[in-house]
Design a protein around this nucleic acid. Structure first.
Length: 485
RNA sequence: GGCUCGUUGGUCAAGAGGUUAAGACGCCGCCCUCUCACGGCGGAAUCAUGGGUUCGAUUCCCGUACGAGCUGCCA
């Protein structure tokens, strides 16, 4: 049997990383077995729907490479793939009627006021258990109200005794008392189905074999099974994925600042790195390899290796992983993507491709670039304390002496290539009987004004060019002289 | 409150009734080095807890604690 999975988001905004991971797993489970991955838009909540959210979903799927085999834009014969369209086609009404006829569901005409009166507060939380009031309406009363156009919903009729079980591929068998199951609403008063109903109907109609979703659905799954059984439909395999939390072990929220795929992309992360990283949140491969492109994931993905405990979203490790992707990237591609960030800080005519390569092993995300290279554009104001460096045996006095001699040496040079500069300074150092590091420290400080730079003194001078380099060294000498006076 | 699920270093995690309990991020140290980074080497750090079962449990069972999810005309 061909595996068919689906990703069924509600178009309510940005794509949460938890949802993205669910989509990823659904995709991988299908593709690992050569199956189909479909996209279904669950827009049954007219209130929460956000305009443009479907575009976000499409763009995210495209950006991450999770291309559906069937979707609203690609009919595979079981459409429509948008639930609001399925509502118009009368699909849910038809199946709701079938359940009503079978006594598995019933019309409920209770007013919001009556429902509110059923509410009780336990442990500070509001609990609402429906009392099956309308189940006991006579067929005549129901027909009468229906004819009169009394607002109504359709509720599932769950038994109050016995138990219901379901099997999850990861969590195993889960059993609950039927008394815990409430008569959930299947069709809302606006005629739209609830997720609870639509998802069962659609998964069946669309031939979904493996239902992959977040584990917040575990508690309602018994109710879904009752629906499948009422219809006499085959129950799909369930794969409930553990949730992703923030550093405080709380559900990842907008407050964390990196809860959605779009947030991450805006923060400069590579799509590939994000996909790779979230794949490893809750799933682990058989070996020790942790770098996978999408194809690699498809090959390696054995869903039995998905865990059952929640995972903390480790931003730190994502950054590291993104840095690794940057290092492995083709230089030309890297340069192209780094360019906007380089230009943010540098407007002078400098060798940006060269700078890009220098910066590459030192950044984790593109936005790290501007701050790191800003000194190329303009010498920052700096304190002469920077000339003090224990390991290089340097301090302001030493630096001043060295800088003066080095300035003379460099002024005599025309070739400001890295090699020429390094050779000359190396000779100078050995002649003077000092370490190369000692000779370089004041120079690097003078030409950069920074304690840490993405390159050594001579590399910086090569990029800066002769005039600018010499000017900065003279400036350094001035600063040091001024401090001594 | 009830129900359900979960708990291996700070984090992601492998593992399995008997192991020196992998690996990765982060952290620390050393090496490399014109600073930092990269790279290399090494280190500290974990089986929530109490009872069972067993020759032997971190692994199996039960309880407890803690965390999470559900308890919506949201998904």
């Amino acid at each position: 049997m061909k595996i068919r999975t689906r990703y069924a988001p509600s178009p309510t905004g940005r794509m949460h990383v938890g949802n993205l991971r669910t989509a990823l797993y659904a995709y991988l489970i299908a593709k690992h077995e050569g199956g189909d991955f479909l996209l279904r838009i669950e827009d049954t909540d007219q209130v929460r729907e956000v305009e443009g959210a479907v575009d976000i979903i499409n763009r995210t799927l495209e950006g991450t490479g999770l291309i559906p085999d069937e979707s609203p834009d690609k009919d595979g014969g079981v459409g429509p793939y948008v639930q609001s369209e399925r509502v118009k086609a009368g699909i849910y009404d038809r199946y709701a009627k079938e359940l009503i006829d079978k006594g598995e569901a019933y019309y409920c005409f209770c007013t919001p006021e009556r429902l509110a009166s059923l509410k009780q507060v336990v442990g500070g939380k509001e609990i609402n258990v429906y009392d099956k009031h309308c189940l006991h309406l006579s067929p005549e009363e129901v027909a009468e109200k229906l004819a009169a156009g009394v607002p109504h919903v359709v509720r599932q009729n769950t038994p109050q005794t016995g138990t219901t079980s379901f099997h999850d591929e990861l969590y195993g068998d889960i059993t609950v008392d039927n008394s815990e199951l409430d008569d959930m609403i299947l069709i809302k008063s606006d005629g739209f189905p609830t997720y609870n109903f639509a998802n069962v109907v659609d998964d069946h109609l669309m031939g979904i074999t493996h239902v992959v979703r977040g584990n917040e659905y575990i508690s309602s799954t018994p109710k879904y099974n009752r629906l499948y059984e009422a219809f006499g439909w085959e129950i799909p395999a369930y794969i409930h994925c553990p949730l992703i939390t923030d550093e405080d072990h709380k559900k990842l929220s907008k407050r964390s600042g990196h809860s959605s795929y779009e947030d991450l992309i805006e923060q400069g992360f590579l799509s590939e790195a994000v996909v790779n990283f979230i794949a490893l949140l809750g799933w682990s491969p058989e070996g020790n390899e942790e770098f996978f492109d999408l194809e690699g994931l498809v090959r390696a993905f054995d869903y039995h290796r998905i865990g059952t405990s929640p995972a903390v979203f480790d931003y730190q490790k994502l950054r590291w992983m993104n840095g690794e992707y940057l290092k492995r990237m083709d230089p030309a591609v890297f340069y192209g993507q780094a360019l906007p960030y380089l230009k943010q800080a540098i407007h002078k005519d400098l060798d940006l491709a060269h700078i890009a390569e220098l910066v590459r092993t030192r950044i984790e995300v593109y936005p790290d670039i501007p701050d790191m290279v800003a000194f190329f554009e303009e010498l920052p104001d700096y304190d002469i304390a920077l000339y003090t460096h224990k390991k290089s045996k340097c301090n302001p006095e030493v630096a001043l002496g060295l800088l003066k001699e080095e300035l003379a040496l460099l002024e005599a040079m025309e070739d400001f290539s890295n090699d020429a500069l390094f050779t000359a300074l190396k000779a100078y150092a050995s002649e003077k009987g000092i370490k190369i590091g000692t000779a370089m420290w004041p120079l690097r400080t003078a030409v950069s004004g920074r304690p840490v730079t993405p390159a050594g003194a001579t590399e910086i001078m090569e990029i800066l060019g002769r005039e600018e380099s010499l000017a900065r060294i003279r400036d350094g000498i001035d600063r040091l002289t001024g401090a001594q006076a």
